[in-house]
Write a protein that binds this DNA or RNA. Structure first.
Lengths: 185, 185
DNA sequence: TCGAATTTTCAGAAATTTCTGAAATATTAA
DNA sequence: TTAATATTTCAGAAATTTCTGAAAATTCGA
């Protein structure tokens, strides 16, 4: 691996984390290298940095593009493909959330909706459906909320997060806004 | 697999999803079976339901316990260990978030903090550190906020989520609460 | 159109992860 | 205690995933 010690540790760590996030080690490493790089990199530069095969890099980049975590760009007067990661970490966070949603949440919601349409055959199925209903409600609520939050501008979003300990206080106002619906505490 | 068609589809789906969440298929399936079951189950019942080996079930249950996603309980007059999943889906969500944090976020923060302590040797390292700093800030902000939200009661939390489209409006009040610090929009 | 440069594909090899059965260990009722 | 019951461990087998090199496909300047 052809990286400074500082970068190497980061890249190795992201390799490990990658596997926990549903991509393989190499894909995590390619992302990490691009994330740290001051300039876009082409595939051969990544091969050189990580010491893996050219074809592996090609497949990894495909995967990262499908996650919209890297962008393909061209340099003037150079036929090769260059890649970079979006600069804004907020944007990255958002993209990741959207993709996770598309790949994990939506299929689960579809499954749950289908299951809830069926007529339970016995007491066990009735109970199973009740559990699925609870899960469905939780996911709908959480993702619906996430949608709303995501619709905010990055500034507003950062703002919201910085509120921190004030959430409680804000909720008091919120309940004031909608008398009779929430306002439990 | 010894399950009603309704339950089988759910269990298979959770097997697939499990692998995307850092546990293997079997672990996901064991969790799903327990989640749907009206009563706690012992290991042999799980073997029967899923058609996998006893030892595999034993290992899977260990893993799920380490995630605090299943609880070990005992039935009066029965030596065998029984398992169940926590009833409240909110609690499950919270537990999962805590464990993910401990296993993924904290190690990453530690790595980033260490890297940021080092003196950059050249321009490339200076840039890499700057990227790491941005990532560090984002994670600190997001998890700090998550901590605050998590401290709320489940009722309040549900409340907060139901606010949905009101977040924008609430923020106006929030900025009013802290004049001069936020209030950008 | 040709051909050099570049990227992608894919079959099989290599590595890793998961799973099993058998043996070891632990628990408890009698 | 002992013996029956229950759980865990773990080495090797099986399955799956990842990786590579070679070949195929694509792109584009001349």
């Amino acid at each position: 691996m052809n990286l400074s010690p500082l970068n190497e540790r980061f890249v190795l760590h992201f390799g490990e984390m990658g596997s926990r996030w549903g991509v393989n080690r190499t894909v995590g490493q390619i992302y990490a290298v691009l994330f740290l790089s001051p300039e876009p990199m082409n595939a051969d530069q990544i091969v050189d940095a990580l010491g893996i095969s050219r074809s592996n890099v090609s497949m990894g980049l495909k995967e990262l593009q499908s996650w919209r975590l890297v962008k393909l760009i061209h340099q003037a007067g150079d036929r090769r493909d260059y890649f970079e990661t979006p600069k804004d970490v907020w944007e990255i966070f958002r993209t990741l959330a959207e993709e996770k949603r598309k790949r994990e949440i939506e299929p689960t919601l579809t499954l749950l909706r289908d299951a809830l349409m069926e007529t339970p055959l016995d007491e066990a199925e009735r109970h199973a459906q009740q559990r699925m209903r609870e899960m469905h409600q939780l996911i709908e609520l959480a993702t619906g909320w996430f949608d709303e939050v995501q619709r905010l501008s990055p500034d507003t979003l950062e703002n919201l997060m910085r509120l921190g300990a004030r959430v409680q206080k804000v909720l008091e106002f919120a309940s004031f806004l909608r008398p009779g619906k929430d306002g439990k505490d």
